[in-house]
Write a protein that binds this DNA or RNA. Structure first.
Length: 548
RNA sequence: GGCCCUGUCGUCUAGAGGCCUAGGACACUCCCCUUUCACGGGAGCGACACGGGUUCAAAUCCCGUCAGGGUCACCA
């Protein structure tokens, strides 16, 4: 009896697709608490919403969680949809004890009742009502199916919340007979959670603040069923820094929409033209552009993005998978997420996962809602990648390429990838270094020249840059062993001779070789490309300039 | 709107009545390094939402105002 009970936490998402960062943080805190205390962290799939839950969504969810490294301790996943008989047995018992009952109002009738209450400026509280025999007959003649409601004892409910650090109460008059079984026979969230948490012996419930009010329902149910009450901790919600509202997938569409409107304004494109460019039918496109809740689907989104010149990495990451695709390492995401609503208390911020496990404490959780600002995450990522060592780096890059199968870097050998990482040292995220390096792995004739880069470094000032480029081309051609040391020595010698700064010569080479003014160190780049391809690209660029 | 929660630099936060002239990190500004973009080094700007109390003493406790958020489903 004296031995302290084991900590058992859980993450209980409903499978609606890829994992949201908010969910990831909830999972993380539950996982950290379990790891820190030597307890268990369990994963349960709340798939009682038949319309929305799919196997595919569950697969994606589990994939994201495993990418993050938040491994659950239950060998078999718990699916609520597979536990119907358990719920039904308990519900039937409640009904037989008169602690729950059948209610026959349809959803339409209920909304009508709610609207009526709203008009009368009352809050709508459902309490049990009796049906006459005639009514009941009519309902069953109509083919109606009843829902089951729990008789919530009318009294004040209170519980202690660890994050708030105090008791929270709900006044008696807000007690309401909430639904525990739906017409389709599935239990509601409230019922499923209470039963499962009890049966899984969950000791600590760490969940989003949006569940705070639900907790009163849950403790009422626990009392009726004779269950122990777990320790509750309601986590703050992460906010979109631009809107100040709950972080949402829609934020990505908002960014695209905003950009589309900007493009339409600046280039004076009509809505018909924009729709055509995006290959989307006009009515659909108009709807999306004007209605904030409308979202583009997976095929439409890339087309609109292309039409308005947006890259994947320009969109705000919201789902865990977005972070993966943009080239963040999971441990960095976890580190940053942990700091949204939790702190070590001693100026330590950048931590390994095991540091976090060691330092985690449930009573250092914050109650204010943080704005999710990605700048700091980006900075954490930079320090991580510059210090994690070549093995971890390579693994991260391989994972990134797996998530980005269309990247030209997929054509590189391991040796080349290692070299690319080396010469890019100091990059923020893998997508950034990928964008900067992809020119190394595409065909010479696929290089696209940036108009302003060509103008600025080659054409401007009587084609000085172009002239230098032509001279340097011959010098490079004469280099026997095409190493970066050798090419650099040749070019530097030319600079001394001609009195030009290195930049005046290096930039034209850069533009010739990669098409833009931005690249990893240029001599390392041309070494990777080799002499033939380097000269080839310079020649192609030279003739491109003649045509300008 | 009802109910509930929350307010410290632009952002994430440290702060448990005197250790606070309020600390750190990111961002920002300037300088240095530099063949571009970055990385790195150095310096700087910058907050207790407001108003009342309580107290010898308040960022910290109390009240009010204001602001923000959550929630009001047969969705979880």
């Amino acid at each position: 009896m004296s031995e302290s009970p084991k900590v058992i936490t859980r993450f209980a998402p409903s499978p609606t697709g890829y994992l949201h960062v908010g969910g990831a943080r909830t999972a993380l805190f539950n996982w950290l608490l379990a790891r820190n205390t030597g307890g268990q962290y369990l994963l349960r799939i709340e798939d009682t919403d038949l319309a929305r839950s799919t196997e595919d969504a569950t697969r994606q969810l589990v994939e994201d969680l495993s990418w993050l490294g938040l491994k659950h301790d239950n060998a078999e996943l718990v699916y609520q949809s597979k536990r119907l008989s358990i719920y039904n047995k308990i519900i039937d018992e409640l009904v037989s004890k008169n602690l729950a009952y059948e209610a026959w109002e349809s959803s339409e009738e209920l909304t009508a009742m709610r609207q009526q209450a709203e008009r009368a400026k009352r809050s709508f509280i459902y309490r049990r009502r009796n049906y006459s025999a005639d009514e009941l007959k009519r309902f069953s003649d109509e083919g109606r199916k009843p829902i089951i409601r729990f008789v919530m004892p009318v009294k004040e409910y209170r519980f202690h919340d660890v994050v708030l650090g105090k008791e929270v109460a709900q006044p008696a008059q807000e007690s309401q007979d909430f639904v525990i079984r739906k017409t389709d026979g599935m239990p509601t969230y409230h019922f499923g959670v209470v039963v499962d948490d009890a049966q899984m012996k969950i000791s600590h419930v760490l969940r989003g603040l949006e569940h705070l009010k639900n907790t009163f329902n849950h403790i009422a149910l626990q009392d009726a069923l004779g269950y122990d009450r777990p320790i509750y901790a309601h986590l703050s919600v992460m906010l979109n820094p631009e809107t100040g509202e709950k972080l949402s997938k829609r934020d990505r569409d908002r960014r695209i929409r905003k950009r589309t409107q900007e493009v339409m304004r600046s280039s004076k494109k009509s809505i018909d033209e924009m729709a055509a460019m995006s290959q989307i039918e006009l009515p659909r496109f108009t709807d999306w552009l004007n209605i904030d809740t409308q979202q583009l689907d997976l095929t439409e989104q890339p087309r609109v993005m292309k039409a308005v010149g947006l890259k994947e990495s320009d969109l705000p990451e919201v789902m865990v998978n977005d972070f993966r695709k943009n080239g963040y390492a999971p441990e960095v995401l976890l580190n940053f997420l942990a700091l949204q609503g939790w702190s070590t208390g001693d100026n330590v911020e950048q931590m390994s996962v095991s540091d976090m496990v060691q330092r985690f404490s449930i009573d250092r959780l914050n109650s204010a809602n943080p704005k999710f600002n990605r700048d700091k995450l980006r900075s954490f990522s930079t320090t991580f990648f510059t210090s994690c060592g070549p093995v971890r780096l390579m693994a991260a890059l391989k994972d990134f390429l797996l998530a980005n199968p269309r990247s030209p870097l997929n054509r590189a050998t391991d040796v080349q990838l290692a070299r690319v990482l080396e010469i890019n040292m100091g990059f923020h995220v893998l997508s950034e270094m990928e964008e900067k390096s992809r020119f190394l792995f595409i065909e010479d004739d696929q290089i696209e020249y940036d108009v302003s880069a060509v103008e600025k470094t080659l054409i401007k000032n009587d084609k000085q840059g172009l002239i230098a480029l032509k001279t340097v081309r011959e010098l490079l051609a004469s280099v026997e062993n095409f190493t970066h040391e050798n090419t650099k020595a040749v070019v530097e010698a030319y600079c001394v001779l001609s009195g030009l700064g290195l930049g005046k010569v290096a930039q034209p080479i850069r533009v010739a070789v990669c098409g833009t003014t931005i690249s990893p160190p240029i001599f390392e780049c041309i070494e990777m490309l080799g002499k033939t391809r380097t000269l080839n690209r310079i020649d192609r660029c030279t003739s491109h300039c003649e045509t300008v």
